Each structure stands twice: as structure tokens, then as C-alpha cells.
Simulated scan of single mutants.
Amino acid sequence: MQVGGCWFDRERGLLIEQTSQESWHLPRAELQVLCLLVEHQGKLVSKHDLKTGDGVHTPLTDTSLARAVFKIRSFLGPQHEGLIETVKGQGYLLHSVQGGASKRLLTSQLLALPSWSLWLVFGFMLAFIVFYIRLIDHSAPTNAIQSSQIYLPSGQVIQQHLYAQSKTNNTLLFELGERLSQSLSLCSSSNWQEAYISLSHDKQVLNITLRGQKLGQSVVRNLKISDLSSPKKFIDSDWLQGVEICD
């Protein structure tokens, strides 16, 4: 079933973001809450019903319910933040998605316009795009907010670069850069020569790009890690063992 920009696979307990194909295996609380909201889509579901569910499992606490709704909203993304409405003192309501009907209405309205008006709108949009592109300074590359060198026991040096949209509130990004730096420094040797790290605006997705040489050829590896927990870990011993960053 479609929920915002995601597909909800109830049987497998998965919420899949359709653009990035990122999937989230819902924990018990989140799955129970989302299933009930979907079953009663467009209707208010009381806190009592959301907490008790089917009566098989232990009821959720008020804190667990609020946390589950928060995590579902976070995964759906800010563009769908109003999809789950909080009805103060009563419960929650999952709004019906009217995207398909809206698109059909817009299409019929466009078809009803005279052809010359469509060409006028198209010309205006094209002129705006050209004007906007010319305003962009393509000569200035994006600069890293922090660059450092990682020294391996073999004497090899790996360059690490951290990127962020803002120069403030990057404490978590710096901590993650330090964790990766410490992990790489324990490698006796590595195929990687450069590491590029960035954190999404909502601080839920960590992107790492590794560049290096292997068997005389250039290699690039892109890693994307999602973490909806709090506090966030992203990089831990299990993850490091799985990605095999050392030779």
C-alpha cells in the first residue's frame, strides 16, 4: 500500500522509500501502529487502540506510542510530515492520499487550456531555467569543511574529507569522521587513498565514498548507512567487519 512516498509491505513488515529504494524493517511497535492507521485510513484511531493493538502482545506505553509515530514520520520525510495528524488528547489520524486524483484533475485542466497558453507557459519556464543556470557560479567547487590525513602502520596515508551544507551543528559528522579515521588507522594496509563523508540534512543517512587503486585500476565504493535510532551510531564494529575497509 502507498503511504506518502513509501510502499508499505505489511506481510513482511517493510516500509520502502520508492525513490531511493531504502527499506526499513519495522520494529513491533512501529508495525502495530502503522497497520492500525492504515486499516482505518482517514479515520481517527484512539491512543488506547493503538497501544493495545490486537491484544496478543503487551500493550505499548504512551512513550513507546509517541516514539513509534515519531520514527514513522521521520522515515516518511518532511514532505509528508502532515500525513499522520496528531489529534490532541485523542489519538492519531492517517490522511488519505489524493495524489492520483489531483494529478488527473490537473491534467484535465491543462488539456482544457488553449494551445497558445501552454506554449506561453513553457516558454516562460524555459526562460526562467536559463536565467537561473546563468546565475550559478560553476567555477567555485564545493569545499570540505574539514580535511585530515590518516596514517597506516605501513606508512600509507589516506586523505579524509568531511562535507556538510552548513558550517555549524556538525558535531555528529566530526564524531563519525573520527570513528572512521580510527578504524582505518588500524589497517595494516588498504586499497583506499581517499574517503569522502557527508551526513544528510536530517542526520539520518551517512554517505561515504572511498576512492583508491586495486590491481592497478582505479576503484570507487559508495556506502550509504541509515540510522533512525537515538543516539545514532552509524559506524560500529559489526558494520566495519561487514564492509571490509582493510585489504
Rank of each mutant, 00 (worst) to 15 (best):
M1E: 14
D9Q: 08
R12Q: 12
G13M: 07
E17F: 13
Q18E: 09
T19A: 15
E22L: 15
H25L: 15
L26T: 00
E30L: 11
L36N: 01
L36W: 08
L36C: 07
S46C: 09
S46H: 02
D49W: 12
D49F: 10
G53Q: 02
H57G: 08
T61A: 08
S64P: 10
S64N: 09
A68G: 02
F70H: 11
K71I: 13
F75S: 04
L83F: 04
G91K: 01
S96F: 11
V97A: 15
V97F: 14
L105Y: 09
A112Y: 09
L113S: 11
L113W: 14
G123F: 15
F128G: 05
V130M: 08
F131Q: 04
Y132M: 07
Y132E: 14
P141K: 00
A144F: 03
Q146D: 13
Q149W: 09
Y151E: 12
L152E: 03
L152I: 08
G155A: 09
Y163V: 14
S166K: 01
N169Q: 14
F174H: 12
F174K: 11
E175Y: 07
G177D: 04
E178R: 01
S183R: 06
L186H: 07
L186C: 03
S188D: 13
Q193H: 12
Y196T: 00
Y196S: 05
Y196L: 11
D202E: 05
Q204R: 14
L206S: 05
T209Q: 10
R211K: 14
G212I: 02
Q213L: 15
G216S: 04
V220M: 15
V220Y: 09
N222C: 13
S226N: 10
L228M: 11
K233Y: 11
F234A: 02
D238S: 01
Q241W: 00
Q241N: 06
C246L: 12
